[in-house]
C-alpha cells in the first residue's frame, strides 16, 4: 500500500511541494506563516475550481481550451445584464444566472462534439474564438468596476484572520469553502458513481468503453455541462474577488490551468487524474510564483522558473519510460535449457 502511494504521481507533486516549501523557508523564514498559507490558498481558489472541471475533460481523453471563455461569457454577461436592470442585491443571483449561462455554453460544445464526432480540442478552439468575439462585439468590450451594493464587501469576507508580523492582517477568504465542497463533489463523482467510472473508462480505452455499453455521448455531455458550470462559477468568484468584471477574463490563462492539471498527475492522453492531485498542481504553481519573491529571485524571472520546473516535471515520465524499456530487457534467459 505504502509502495503504491509512493509510486503515484500525486506523491511526486506532494514531494515537490514539500521540498520547495522547505527550500523557500530556509532562505526566507517569513515564508512559514499562516499568512503565506492564506495567500497561496486565496490565489488557488479560482484556478482550482476551473481545473476541477477541466480535469473531467482531460480524464475523458480530451483537451479543452474554451472553458476560460465560458467563464468570461458567464460572469461578464451576467454582470452587464444585471447592471442594465439596476440590480443591487447580493451575489447569489450572479451565481445562479452565470451557472445557467455556463451550462448552456458547455452543453453547446458538448453537443457539437458528440453530434458531429469532432475532436474536443478543435471544437474548443472554435468556441473560444467565437465566445470572446461574441462577448466583445455583442455585450461589451471594456472592463466594468461598478459592483452591486449587495456584493461590495465580498472580497474581504474572511473565515479567519490572523495578525502577521510581516504583512499585517491576513485572512482566509471564505470562498475556499467552495473549493472544498466542489472538490469533494467532483471526487465523489469520479470515484463513487458509474458515470465517473465511465469517464475513466472512455479515457482509458474508448473502443472498449463503447463495446462495454457505456453511454459515451451522454457522459461527454455531462462532462461539458459540469465544465461550463464550474467555469462560470470560477468566473463570478474571480470577478468579485478582484472587484471588477472584464470581457477578456482569463483569455490567456487556459494553458496555465492545463499545466496545473498535468502537474497534478493527470495524463494528456486521458484515463488518469485526481481531484487531490489537481489541487496540488494548482498549489504548486502558486508556490513557484511566491518562491521567486520570497527567495529574492526578482519577479521578472518567475516565468522562466515556472517553465523550467514544468520542463523538468514533464520529462520525468518520459525518462522513466526510457529506463523501464532498458530494464525490461533484463528478463533472464535461463542458463540451461
Amino acid at each position: 500500500m505504502l509502495k503504491k502511494i509512493v509510486k503515484s504521481s500525486e506523491f511526486v507533486t506532494f514531494t515537490i511541494i514539500v521540498l520547495l516549501s522547505l527550500i523557500i523557508g530556509i532562505i526566507n523564514p517569513a515564508f512559514f506563516s499562516l499568512a503565506t498559507v492564506f495567500d497561496v490558498l486565496r490565489a488557488s481558489i479560482v484556478v482550482s475550481i476551473m481545473a476541477f472541471g477541466l480535469l473531467l475533460v482531460i480524464i475523458a481523453g480530451g483537451i479543452d481550451i474554451s472553458f476560460v471563455a465560458f467563464a468570461a461569457l458567464a460572469s461578464y454577461g451576467t454582470h452587464m445584464f444585471l447592471l442594465s436592470r439596476g440590480y443591487n442585491g447580493g451575489i447569489f443571483l450572479y451565481y445562479a444566472i452565470a451557472c445557467v449561462i455556463g451550462l448552456g455554453a458547455g452543453l453547446l460544445s458538448g453537443l457539437i462534439v458528440t453530434r458531429f464526432n469532432l475532436p474536443i480540442f478543435d471544437v474548443s478552439l472554435a468556441m473560444m474564438t467565437m465566445w470572446y468575439g461574441f462577448i466583445r462585439f455583442f455585450i461589451g468590450s471594456t472592463k466594468n468596476f461598478k459592483l452591486p451594493e449587495g456584493a461590495v464587501g465580498y472580497y474581504s469576507r474572511f473565515l479567519v484572520t490572523v495578525r502577521d508580523p510581516f504583512v499585517g492582517e491576513a485572512g482566509l477568504h471564505f470562498s475556499i469553502l467552495y473549493v472544498l465542497i466542489i472538490g469533494v463533489l467532483i471526487h465523489c463523482l469520479l470515484k463513487y458513481t458509474t458515470l465517473g467510472r465511465g469517464i475513466f473508462a472512455m479515457g482509458g480505452n474508448r473502443e472498449v468503453a463503447i463495446r462495454s455499453g457505456f453511454n459515451i455521448k451522454g457522459t461527454l455531455l455531462v462532462v461539458f455541462g459540469i465544465l461550463g458550470v464550474l467555469s462560470a462559477f470560477a468566473g463570478v468568484t474571480h470577478s468579485f474577488l478582484s472587484r471588477h468584471f472584464e470581457p477578456t477574463l482569463f483569455m490567456t490563462q487556459n494553458l496555465d490551468v492545463i499545466a496545473a492539471v498535468i502537474l497534478g498527475g493527470a495524463s494528456v492522453t486521458g484515463g488518469k487524474g485526481s481531484v487531490l492531485g489537481t489541487f496540488m498542481g494548482v498549489i504548486l504553481i502558486q508556490l513557484i510564483n511566491r518562491a521567486m519573491v520570497l527567495t529574492g529571485i526578482t519577479v521578472e524571472w518567475q516565468q522562466l522558473m515556472i517553465g523550467l520546473v514544468l520542463a523538468f516535471f514533464i520529462s520525468i515520465p518520459a525518462i522513466r519510460d526510457l529506463i523501464n524499456k532498458r530494464a525490461s530487457r533484463a528478463v533472464e534467459v535461463p542458463e540451461e535449457i
Binding site: L125, A126, M128, M130, W131, G133, F134, F137
Partner: peptide, 11 residues
C-alpha cells in the same frame, strides 16, 4: 471584435 466571432462560427 466581430471578426473573432465570425472566425469561430466559420470554423
Amino acid at each position: 471584435f466581430f471578426k473573432d466571432f465570425a472566425w469561430g462560427v466559420l470554423l
